[in-house]
Amino acid sequence: MSSTDALADAATAPRRSSRSSVVQSTGKSEADAAPTAKKRKAAAAAAGDDSDKPAKGKKKAKADAVEAEGEAEAGEPAEEEEGKLGPIDIGDSLPSLTLKNEKDEDVDVSSLTADKGLVLFLVPKADTPGCTTQACGFRDIYPDFTGLEYNVYCLSADTPAAQSKWQTKKELPYPLLSDRKRVLITALGAGEGGKTKRSHFIFEKGGKLIDKKIPVKAGDSPKIALEFIKAQASTE
């Protein structure tokens, strides 16, 4: 065979693919490689499923925590129920209930009528125009109440700090009681929709409720309360 013929045969001879060479060198066929790839894919998927589990666990734990918190919040009113008082009406006595005064000191309201009568006037919010009118009205005739053996107290849902500031600003001569949860305010019938109705209540010595005005005008409250006490004194 001539050199020309040899070159022609080499050019027309089928070329062996490099892929076949790789298969031969590894000793594995393409068919053998396919199951291995599937196994690896399945293993990876399984690993992915496992990695998802902690995340799901965290989500469930978070959901459980939220639910528990909701149950705790739902249970809070039960605690408030224990602090609630029954309605206080004419003829009823002041209950034993501890409130803070403007000095942030504890005061048992049942002790306020141990030695004298009590005028308890309620204001919606300290240091507002109407409430200041009512408070200053009691301030201006305060000696008339004490002369008739009656103490005067202001009651509101304000903080002791706010009450103290108001007391100093307006030179109020009587104590102020803070009923933050409106426990006593509600029992007196002056708490509605998270608000306090302007009013006043008169308790005789010993604690029995003998008069109430609810609602009452800010300017009228002090005068009406004093007139009632004077009328009571004249009949005794």
Rank of each mutant, 00 (worst) to 15 (best):
K59N: 09
P77G: 05
K103E: 06
T113K: 01
F145L: 02
P95W: 02
D140P: 05
E81N: 05
V109L: 04
L122C: 11
A114M: 09
L118Q: 06
P87V: 01
S20A: 15
S93W: 01
T12V: 14
K59Y: 08
D115H: 07
A126R: 11
V119N: 05
R16L: 13
P77D: 03
K38W: 01
T133E: 05
K53I: 13
A68N: 14
Y142E: 12
L112Q: 10
S110K: 12
G75C: 02
G147M: 03
D64Q: 14
G91A: 00
P54V: 06
Q134S: 14
R19F: 12
D127R: 11
A72W: 11
S51D: 14
V109I: 14
S25L: 05
S25C: 03
A74C: 05
P124F: 03
Q24D: 14
D104K: 15
L148M: 07
I88L: 05
S18Q: 14
A61M: 08
S111R: 15
P143M: 08
T113G: 03
D144P: 00
D50C: 04
S93I: 02
G75V: 00
G117V: 08
A43V: 04
T36M: 12
L112A: 08
R139Y: 05
Q24P: 00
A47E: 15
K28M: 12
E82F: 04
K116D: 03
A44C: 01
E102I: 02
L97C: 05
E67W: 09
P35G: 00
P54F: 02
L122N: 04
R16A: 12
V119T: 05
K41H: 02
D108F: 01
G86Y: 07
E102S: 11
G147L: 01
G27W: 07
K62W: 10
K62T: 14
L120Y: 09
A44N: 05
A44K: 09
E30M: 02
K60T: 13
V107Q: 06
A34V: 10
P87S: 02
Q134E: 15
A68E: 14
K100D: 03
D140H: 06
T133A: 04
I90P: 02
A46F: 12
A55K: 13
E80R: 07
T26I: 01
D115V: 03
S110A: 15
E71W: 07
S17D: 12
V123Y: 15
A72H: 09
R19L: 13
S51Q: 13
N101T: 01
E105M: 10
D140E: 12
K125Y: 08
R19E: 06
D32N: 04
F145I: 01
C131K: 00
S110M: 10
E30N: 04
D64P: 04
V66W: 01
R15W: 11
I90C: 02
K41Y: 02
I141R: 06
S18Y: 14
T98N: 02
L118A: 08
E67V: 11
D127L: 07
K59E: 12
E81C: 02
S21V: 12
K53T: 13
